[in-house]
Design a protein around this nucleic acid. Sequence first.
RNA 1: GCGGGUGUAGCUCAAUGGUAGAGCGUCAGCCUUCCAAGCUGAAUGUUGAGAGUUCGAGUCUCUUCACCCGCUCCA
Length: 574
Amino acid sequence: MPDEAQPTTKSMDDIMALCKRRGFIYQASEIYGGVNGFWDYGPLGAQLKKNLRDAWWTDVVMKGCNGKPGPDGNPVSIVPLDSSIIQNPKVWEASGHVGGFNDPMVDDKETKQRFRADHLIGVYVSIPFESVEQFQVLQEAGQNIASPEVNVVPDKTIVANSSHEAVELLTDRKLQKLLGIRSFQPFANDTNGMVLGRIDAGSGERICEFRSIPAQTLELHASSVPSPFTGKAGSLTTPRAFNLMFKTVLGATGNAEDNTAYLRPETAQGIFINFKNVVDTTRVSVPFGIAQTGKAFRNEVTPRNFTFRSREFEQMEIEFFCHPDDSKGWYTFWRDWRMQWWQDLGLKGDNLILREHDSDELAHYAKEGAGTADIEYMFPFTAPGYGELEGIADRTNFDLKQHAEHSKTKLDYFDNTRGELAKNGQPKGERYLPHVIEPSAGLDRGVLALICEAFTPDENRPSGVYMKFHPRIAPIKAAVFPLVKKDGMPEIAEPLYNELRNRFGHLGTIEYDVKQSIGKRYARMDEAGCPFCFTIDSDTLTDNTVTVRHRDTLDQERIAIDRVADFLANKLGV
RNA sequence: GCGGGUGUAGCUCAAUGGUAGAGCGUCAGCCUUCCAAGCUGAAUGUUGAGAGUUCGAGUCUCUUCACCCGCUCCA
């Protein structure tokens, strides 16, 4: 538990007011009344966001996880990519984003599976089974054994195209076990058009009927319909039409029917569809990763919580390709390293957690016991809960397989370091579809987390609050102030300012301000989160030293003016 | 999507149905010798938007937009 003065005391209203006041984040189209789900970054916010993106780019891509060896002991290899926001619409069919575009979909909240509502087949268990004869007698008497009326909830459910397919699927032992079915046998023939079987779902053998579930049943009783993935009720949502992708039309005169395209809902697919290109042209070899940052768009039903859930957002994604046997090791590696990375940027303590998804029951479609973990931050609006910053998922070979099938392109990787040894002592090589570990981070969420974390109320200072940004991501890196605008102080300060700007300007803003009282200037830097202020005073005139004012401690120290740049370089870690 | 709340200057907020204001911030000048000091002055609003009631609307009514909170949701 938090010891004291933890973020629960931070007010989101105060944070948002500061974001506006200091130019971090504005509402998009504000002068027109805004637009739901979109935000603009102001001067400080834009630089903050760039600094976070750059930190990720540098540490992940350029330095390969900052030089930390992978689980195989070798350096981690990552190459960059910048794929287009608009792709061939077939990409989104293959990825499953377009599937059931106009069809109501149901989600299983527990397993995160989504399926078409009309593909949910109900298994209606009815009278105890004693003999086929007894059943036939009932049949001939015209008695309905089970009736999928609106108010009747099926005992089990299966996702299938038809009742007949559902029967076939249910003959699978694994599925039976998953759904808590002890035994199942289909009837050889349909009876009066009914699809039947004998089933033991825990209360002895009974007759069951397979039927589509009426849409109304799902509408009215979603919470009591059992999940087709776990057999347990309570995790299904009501059917909803999903239109999460933004549509657009290609060509100025194109007609919408034939030329519909979509703004990407995630950057990941751009990487998968370029896997072959990268492998063919850049001398990479598995294991390696492809990384990119970029905007993605989702037409969220309910944008909420400041920038946390926006309709336009920026992702920082890595798709790391490895041999299927190595996926577990790489998953663990990425999960832990990504957590460490956020911590190193200042998200520490109880505010940041690593939450591993419970996936024991997903074994039948998430092979190899694929893992998923979230790195989550306790935002003021989620406290005492957490909101996701980054997800690390073992996607197996799902995506490459999908794209290989839909594009009819071979996406296998030929690994000539594996396979049996040939006579000459060289491995014969192995052809396989790599598995993928995906660390996918939200840049806007990262920025928001850094802002929330940095926001530090302090009654003892004039600003009442200061932004405790890690120097590396602070939008303003340093400020140069002549104590007063006379006695030759500006003449000394200006060259120092120019020196710092030339050397550090690519990392962020260097501020120079001669106006108004020094206290006011310090206060402004507190709210902007500038970590260091260098002040030229009368002593500078005689001994060539300046005051360094530390944002977090308010401490002051004197250093030689010609050491200022090195001092700052050291603090910024460059 | 449902329910509740809030929209007045950059921020925080006033204004009985009767002239739209204050503090802070911002800007300019003076002053200044290390934490929003002081003095002088200035700019800033279709009161979220649109309709209606009224002699007259920031205020009452309706519609709409945005944001916040709670549900819902978030492949």
